[in-house]
Design a protein around this nucleic acid. Sequence first.
DNA 1: CTGAAAGCGCTAACAA
DNA 2: TTGTTAGCGCTTTCAG
Lengths: 343, 343
Amino acid sequence: MTRRNKKPSSEKNISIVDVAKTSGVSIATVSRVINKIGTVKESNRIKVNNTIKDLKFQPSVFAQRLATGKSNVVALVIPRYEGVFYSFYALELIRGVGTMCEALKLDLLLHLTDAHGPLSMRGVGGIIFSDIIGNRAQLEESLARGIPSVVINYYVDDLDVSCIAIDNAGGAESAVNYLIGLGHKKIAHITGDIMTQAAAKRLEGYRRALEKNNIKLRKDYIFETDYSRGQARSAAEKLIKSSDPATAVFVASDAMALEVMAVARELGKNIPDDLSIVGFDDNPSGLYGPVGLTTVRQPLIRMAEESVKELNRLILLKKNSLKKILLPAELVIRESCKPFTGG
Amino acid sequence: MTRRNKKPSSEKNISIVDVAKTSGVSIATVSRVINKIGTVKESNRIKVNNTIKDLKFQPSVFAQRLATGKSNVVALVIPRYEGVFYSFYALELIRGVGTMCEALKLDLLLHLTDAHGPLSMRGVGGIIFSDIIGNRAQLEESLARGIPSVVINYYVDDLDVSCIAIDNAGGAESAVNYLIGLGHKKIAHITGDIMTQAAAKRLEGYRRALEKNNIKLRKDYIFETDYSRGQARSAAEKLIKSSDPATAVFVASDAMALEVMAVARELGKNIPDDLSIVGFDDNPSGLYGPVGLTTVRQPLIRMAEESVKELNRLILLKKNSLKKILLPAELVIRESCKPFTGG
DNA sequence: CTGAAAGCGCTAACAA
DNA sequence: TTGTTAGCGCTTTCAG
């Protein structure tokens, strides 16, 4: 029955009680002021706000969350895979999500996962999954637990979950169509990591464009990579040194496309005269260099921001208003392609 | 005096009480099991662990933190400035910190800040500040609040705070010394964003090396940039087109160094015959391309990981054992430099 | 080795 | 408008 020893008052953290006492009101009133609940007399509000400032009081988030049962922590789950993580895409994503979280006063928890083991989602108000690679189980668990979740950059057909992705297939198709419109028939494709939906869909779009235009798909024109510059380089070398080289190539990322350009130049080829190149991303890097890179622009930042907004909505509304959004990707024409004039 | 309505038991969250009941022990015992406190009878431990699994019980972090007063949340503060954020460095940092946090079971809170307004540090157990640019006030506040903090990539002389940084000046100096050793006298420097300590120190190292070797500093050989490829490009153009061009250049980042290489090639120059180049970072991108980039390797991942460990130590020990660490940066010689043989 | 119970700091009924 | 008070779910004495 004995009381726990009270801490020496010297290092006691100031709590709502202290604020209440020195303001001469009840803790309830202080709480109301903190939560900006209107029903507080002006004079009291001011008084409380002042002592809050004086005492440098900051309410304990943990107590708040315990009491309300609400958490405003948003987790962002990103696969740790090198090819995926070290990309323009990942940075844009982090930046977009991070910025929107700051704006909405949400705390951003970052989870770099290798998809092994269950994700710790204790105390998390909502989760943004980016790029479901092998961690579908984690997604399903989060759903089963009833944690508001949204998937980004991966269109989920078969699960009741909000997702927001880019129309990768459509973007790829328009890129290849553009090349075809320019008269190219020998069009190669350097893919990204086919484990990612984005890369798979871009390949699909490439295929579709060829098919619709009755151009036969050539297996030797498709080069699979993991999005890395190294693999882009070897693909480019094969492509260019081929005995029957393609006259145009659609590359699954700008970073790789730039590498292809570099290789071409090293091998004495001229861009776009000898080889037309289209990338994907609209990475600002593509603007530099002597030849602006024609590419497919994907609204990454917008996607990231929308995902936070959507998640926030899910958290607040607590209802099952799932949305599946596909954002369009748009061809940006610069100087890296030329009409095919050859025989 | 009336009781608050209890939630309908249907959607009640399982708590430690439920586990205690179905296990037939007290909540104290359950708590002991959760916290791996040895004094629990084996049979009870097993029983509890089983019901935890059965019920899929996960203790509420908020309740835990409220009760213990401890938080295992670590915040990483990164400036939102474009040049800094979109860099090899930032990604490595996030990855290193993120990985170590996962390993130490710390929650990583990401703060992308523009240094305006006070940082929300409510409920945070410790803070890692990366690159103090304009947000010194935030650092000082965190220190004043007694929140364990460590600064990364910025050596703080004048504050009682742990920091861990790279010996940028030393790295730069050895890079330039190498160039001098190769016989170069006309050595240019393309700086990074001089607002960052790293860039300033690299410039300092460049200066020091020249001085020590009695080479006069030429202002027209120093090109200031914001780390962007765009500015690297224009610097490179000026550099190469100069009427009295340098024969070697030390560039403050690999990304920019690669851009310089590209420009040189476009302008018909040969690397390393016409221009020797040293970068900084040891960015894997430097390995591709026909000429491997000689560069200064900085142990970014290690720095990031160490910072988390140090912070964790500060949090646990709660004592003022601050450390200031300067990690060495090491020259990595590849093919982008050549002895100067000219007149 | 175990259980009872006092907090941790806050929110939200409810009563006034 | 305001104050009182019962929890939120857990940790941690203290007394068995």
